[in-house]
């Protein structure tokens, strides 16, 4: 088992000990191992190097590698915790941890704020929201007149931008999502509740004694 284990980890940079990863997240050891099965299948879809690159991530999301998408890029960048241009297994588990049903709402709200703060200025600015809105309209092949887009932005900022400075800060964001809890639905993945059922093959590749799971 020792030889198998070390070879496996060499092929997968960032494949920390499942027990350690489980101790730092809301996942059990079995769930971390099931996530590894998912990670393996995504990370070998284009280049079999044990890492997820942007193309592989988009392929997994859209089942189509040609699709360029602002939101998928933002999610990828946030999952790329070490800013290496690729997602390793440890990044994958720690990022998905925020989407766990048991993760604190505060973490989900902070992650969503970072997601929408495209330029990382610490504020969600009107131009950024406009850019995301236009990206969404392109993606869904929906056409809206410029005045309609501006009206949606006006309405959004009247609701969210309490001090009226044209940008949403973290406190305003917290208040806004508290009044609009449906916005946080995308931050919880119910799939993570029964991940071991979705990827039962982890049992055959487990490196951990049953007692530790």
């Amino acid at each position: 088992m020792g030889c198998f284990s070390s070879t496996s980890r060499k092929q997968f940079p960032g494949h920390e000990d499942p027990i350690l990863l489980a101790s730092k997240t809301f996942f059990s050891v079995s769930e971390v191992e099931a996530l590894f099965e998912l990670f393996k299948s995504i990370s070998k879809s284009v280049i079999d190097d044990g890492l997820i690159n942007k193309e592989e991530f988009q392929l997994a999301l859209f089942k189509n590698r040609k699709k360029e998408n602002l939101f998928a890029n933002r999610i990828f960048d946030l999952f790329d915790v070490k800013h290496k241009g690729v997602i390793d297994f440890s990044d994958f588990v720690s990022s998905l941890n925020v989407f766990h049903p048991n993760a604190p709402l505060e973490d989900k709200i902070n992650f969503a704020f970072k997601l929408y703060d495209l330029d990382g200025t610490g504020y969600i600015e009107r131009e950024e929201v406009k850019q995301m809105l236009i990206a969404l309209l392109c993606e869904s092949e929906m056409k809206l007149a410029d005045e309609t887009i501006e009206a949606i932005l006006d309405k959004t900022f009247i609701e969210a931008d309490a001090d009226g400075d044209g940008k949403i800060d973290k406190t305003e964001w917290l208040n806004f999502v508290t009044r609009n809890p449906s916005l946080m639905k995308i931050m919880t993945l119910t799939y993570l509740r029964d991940i071991t059922t979705t990827f039962p093959s982890f049992v055959f590749h487990s490196e951990v004694d049953e007692i530790a799971t």
């Binding site: 998912l38 995504i42 997994a60 999301l61 859209f62 089942k63 998408n69 602002l70 939101f71 998928a72 890029n73 933002r74 999610i75 998905l96 989407f99 997601l115 929408y116 929201v129 995301m132 809105l133 990206a135 969404l136 993606e139 869904s140 929906m142 809206l144 309609t148 009206a151 949606i152 932005l153 309405k155 959004t156 609701e159 969210a160 806004f176 609009n180 449906s182 916005l183 639905k185 995308i186 993945l189 119910t190 799939y191 991940i195 979705t198």
Partner: peptide
């Protein structure tokens, strides 16, 4: 719902790019 009755974030959150559930669909 009509886009006009929604705020920008309600619309944005419908993006397929934010639907991480599709990672789990084989």
């Amino acid at each position: 719902a009509s886009p006009l009755t929604m705020n920008a974030f309600q619309l944005i959150s419908t993006s397929q790019g934010l639907n991480l559930g599709s990672l789990f669909e084989k």
